[in-house]
Design a binder for these strands. Structure first.
Length: 653
RNA sequence: GCACCCGUAGCUCAGCUGGAUAGAGCAACGGACUUCUAAUCCGUAGGUCGGUGGUUCGAAUCCACCCGGGUGCGCCA
């Protein structure tokens, strides 16, 4: 049921005779900010009054005289400077809730205009270990996938994996020089991953050594500049102070960079075996790059190895997805688009969109200084080229209407250029959206890493979540008034659900654009706004049914009405009735946190209800049935809402 | 130098296209388990929404400037 849209429609016809900007005005019909003002409020009388040059309260009265909401609302009231406060009729609300109980979509409709949406999420680099960043893209992407699909869109989930990039150069180099054959036979992926890390480490070492002198030179230069500027600061106050500050900031950045480069080198050289390897492979950076180039130009050996590596890598990736419950309809990686790249560049040139610049082929977008490079000097294509080919493919072969990219916000400039180029290229009928998200930070407010500075692997992250959740499940079950109810296997099953749910919920409940601090203690906590809280609310509802000896289906089928006399009942009922509004809001802006907020409020409303209103022990049959039905709708709403977020529930906890 | 983002309670964060007294969770304090799981509930305290100006009936929200923090601008993806 869509309450908001219904109210807006009613207001639209009331406002139409007074203004031409009906849409803008009806959008000012909103859920009440404060329960004391009712359930909904319309703020449209004030701006309309300005347009008409009449007193706002008089305009409000005018709107009310044309407004017909008597079937769903109590008589509206005008308050303050011209707010119109609306309170839903409790009998209307109760009737709607009764219809939602037992409806398999809980009364949620489908969108009027379904769109073909290609949702691009997760997109890890094959053969590189997955980390928290991939978690965000996967979790947010999966949530949007379920949500949009549930609302009736035609959604295709596509994992645009990086299976053609630089990391394969490193792996190929590693395979040719450092392979442990036995390890490769026993656990291919682990060995490839070791090779990647090893070569990457060696490359970074050489690169750091190479960069350090330049860094130090630049630092010395900046230090000198700071000294000079300090001497001059007294004259010419404002401008030179600004300059000085800037220089000091630069200096501090350079100092940190130089220090961390030195530390990196020292750490590396502390390991004599690594140092020996590095000395034995001085050209490793260039040589790894050549291995990729060979792969790209069709070298037989490298192509064969690539084909040998890939299945194992994909299987390892799939294990993580299975565990997370993340699914895709397609996995079309970068390699899939390789055959199309030459044609893409040729076409861009033919249409005068791309031109040569310093040997590279670039698209220059007016208003953007940075060129969008589609072919490098050395003739290699870039991810820009691949992304354009992907858009072309999705538009032509997949009938895409909406393209969503769930990708780190640091790539926003890339997407801006990409979308602009695609539009100029002729794909201007599509809707493009970079569904960006912020960085996962550690407690030190820097990107989340282990203490030694390594990226945290996804597998160990999930293991830790489950083991922490197990502690909570054990503690709770042990503390039950009538003794423990769960055996070890059941506890473990619940710990998986709570642990994985917690990690996903923590991610989803932040505004996706914000960076957020990864904090185990908050995520898997006994209290507060966590997955566990919602899962617990769900388990408590199920407990009521179980103890009363009713199945969910029996409760749906019970003859009877929904009553909302107690404030806690009405608050819960209103909250449940807003489910579809919340789904639509979340989908409209691709913001799962709007749905987590809703579910938290729902769990909250239920917990209050649970505290104040006996269900199974309620003496009045009429009331007991009503409360059973409210409980059933709560359970279904929580279950479905969480499921759309990719979070599971358990009937017992 | 260019571009983008952020600054809200002690901490972590919400705040939808400008709306009434700025909200949650944690932490603090005080209450509530003989009654459906206290992973809960009820209450108290805590904020010049970074600063200054402007736009207007009305600004955390829009605009300008300033202060402070971050990120991107590598022919890496």
């Amino acid at each position: 049921m869509i309450i908001l849209a219904e109210l807006r429609a009613r207001f639209a016809s009331a406002i139409a005779p007074l203004s031409t900007e009906v849409d803008t005005l009806t959008r000012l019909v909103l859920p009440a900010q404060n329960a004391q003002f009712g359930d909904y409020q319309a703020n449209c009388a004030m701006p309309l009054a300005k347009q008409l040059g009449r007193p706002p309260r008089e305009v409000a009265a005018d709107i009310l005289s044309r407004l017909d909401v008597s079937d769903l609302c109590e008589p509206p009231e005008i308050a303050g400077p011209g707010f119109i406060n609306l309170k839903l009729r409790t009998d209307w609300l109760a009737d709607r809730l009764l219809q939602a109980v037992g409806n398999d979509r809980l009364g949620v409709g489908r969108v009027e205009l379904p769109k073909r949406v290609i949702l691009d999420y997760s997109s890890p680099n094959v053969a590189k270990p997955m980390h928290v960043g991939h978690l965000r893209s996967s979790v947010i992407g999966a949530a949007l996938y379920h949500l949009l699909k549930f609302l009736g869109h035609d959604v295709v989930g596509d994992n645009h994996i990086g299976d053609w990039g630089t990391q394969f150069g490193m792996i190929l180099y590693g395979y040719k020089h450092f392979l442990d054959e036995q390890a490769y036979r026993e656990n291919t992926v682990a060995e490839l991953s070791r090779l990647y890390r090893l070569v990457n480490q060696l490359c970074e070492y050489h690169q750091t050594i190479e960069e350090l002198p330049g860094l130090e030179w630049k630092l010395a230069e900046t230090e000198q500049a700071v000294n000079d500027a300090e001497a001059e600061t007294e004259q010419n106050e404002k401008e030179s102070k600004r300059l000085l500050k800037k220089l000091q900031a630069d200096m501090s950045t350079l100092r940190n960079a130089a220090a961390s480069a030195e530390a990196k080198i020292a750490r590396f050289e502390a390991d004599p075996d690594l140092k020996a390897l590095a000395d034995a492979h001085p050209g490793i950076v260039v040589d790894s790059r050549r291995e990729v180039a060979l792969l790209h130009t069709g070298d037989e050996e490298n192509r064969r190895l690539w084909e040998e590596f890939l299945p194992a890598c994909n299987r390892a990736m799939q294990d993580v997805y299975d565990r997370l419950g993340v699914e895709f309809d397609l996995t079309l990686g970068e390699s899939f688009y390789q055959p199309m790249l030459a044609e893409v560049v040729r076409d861009l040139i033919e249409r005068n969109l791309a031109q040569e610049s310093q040997g590279a082929i670039c698209v220059f977008i007016p208003g953007n200084r940075a060129p969008f490079i589609v072919r490098k000097q050395d003739g290699a294509y870039t991810y820009a080229t691949t992304d354009l080919a992907t858009i072309q493919y999705r538009a032509r072969n997949m009938q895409a209407e909406v393209l969503l990219y769930v990708v780190d916000k640091r790539q926003s400039e890339h997407f801006q250029l990409l979308f602009e180029t695609a539009r100029l290229w002729g794909f201007d009928q599509l809707e493009y959206q970079h569904v960006s998200f912020g960085t996962v930070m550690g407690k030190d407010n820097k990107p989340y890493k282990t203490r030694s500075g390594d990226i945290v692997g996804l597998g160990s992250l999930l293991d830790e979540a489950v083991s922490r959740a197990r502690g909570i499940v054990d503690a709770n079950d042990d503390a039950k008034p009538n003794g423990p109810e769960l055996d070890a296997a059941e506890r473990q099953r619940i710990a998986e659900i709570v642990g994985l749910g917690s990690i996903k919920y923590a991610d989803l409940h932040h505004n996706r654009d914000s960076d957020y601090v990864f904090d185990w203690d908050k995520m898997i906590s006994m209290t507060g706004d966590t997955a566990a809280y919602m899962q617990y609310a769900y388990a408590r509802v199920c407990g009521i049914f179980r103890k009363a000896g009713h199945s969910r289906q029996e409760i749906r089928d019970l003859p009877g009405q929904v009553r909302l006399n107690h404030p806690a009942e009405r608050a819960l009922g209103l909250q449940l009735a807003r489910f579809e509004d919340s789904l639509r809001n979340a989908a409209a802006e691709y913001r799962p946190n709007l749905l987590t907020n809703y579910l938290f409020e729902t769990a909250n409303a239920f917990s209050t209800f649970y505290d104040k209103c006996p269900v199974a022990s309620e003496e009045s049959l009429d009331l007991r049935v009503s409360r059973f039905k409210l409980c059933e709708l709560t359970a279904s709403t929580m279950e479905l809402g969480l499921r759309l977020l990719g979070i599971q529930t358990s009937e017992r906890m």
